[in-house]
Simulated assay, not measured.
Amino acid sequence: MDMKRINAGKLRAIGYDARDKVLRVELEDGSALEYLNVGAELWRRFSTSGVAWSFYRDNIEEEFTSRRAAARNAGAARAALDDLFKPPGESS
């Protein structure tokens, strides 16, 4: 799924899988949610909205069931943090 980077309210990225009708939103805290059975027309309206955060709150957040999704690149982010906070002299 291709993600579109945005900076709207707490939204940081949005994406849509048309085949599976899954909408994915990534939030500023690093969490990700997936919404099932989202139609292509709603995705089109959301992805082109000038007020994406309001659109999300009004038309998606309360209207569709969400599930937590793994954050993208979580493993790489974790490895980078582990490297940053390693005791001096310890190698990977």
Rank of each mutant, 00 (worst) to 15 (best):
74 A>H: 12
61 E>C: 08
58 D>R: 15
20 D>F: 05
42 L>T: 13
85 F>W: 14
92 S>C: 03
78 R>K: 14
64 F>H: 06
75 G>W: 10
32 A>P: 02
45 R>I: 07
62 E>I: 11
67 R>Q: 15
46 F>M: 05
33 L>F: 10
92 S>L: 07
4 K>V: 11
26 E>V: 08
59 N>G: 02
18 A>M: 03
58 D>A: 08
15 G>Q: 04
86 K>R: 15
74 A>G: 07
34 E>Q: 11
54 S>E: 01
84 L>T: 14
44 R>S: 15
27 L>C: 04
76 A>K: 10
17 D>A: 09
36 L>V: 02
43 W>C: 11
7 N>Q: 14
46 F>Y: 09
59 N>F: 13
62 E>T: 12
27 L>F: 15
21 K>Y: 05
90 E>D: 10
57 R>L: 13
4 K>P: 01
87 P>W: 05
67 R>C: 03
9 G>S: 01
39 G>Y: 01
30 G>V: 06
58 D>M: 05
12 R>G: 00
46 F>T: 01
42 L>E: 09
61 E>V: 09
50 G>L: 06
30 G>S: 02
35 Y>L: 09
41 E>G: 02
80 A>L: 15
44 R>M: 08
68 R>F: 12
55 F>Y: 07
42 L>W: 03
39 G>E: 07
6 I>T: 07
80 A>Q: 12
66 S>K: 14
60 I>K: 03
79 A>S: 10
92 S>D: 14
2 D>K: 14
60 I>Q: 01
44 R>G: 03
29 D>K: 10
76 A>S: 09
78 R>D: 04
90 E>R: 11
42 L>N: 07
91 S>H: 12
39 G>P: 06
7 N>T: 10
34 E>G: 13
32 A>Y: 08
70 A>E: 14
48 T>I: 02
32 A>H: 02
6 I>E: 11
53 W>C: 02
73 N>M: 05
20 D>H: 06
20 D>W: 08
26 E>A: 11
34 E>M: 09
74 A>T: 10
26 E>S: 13
90 E>K: 10
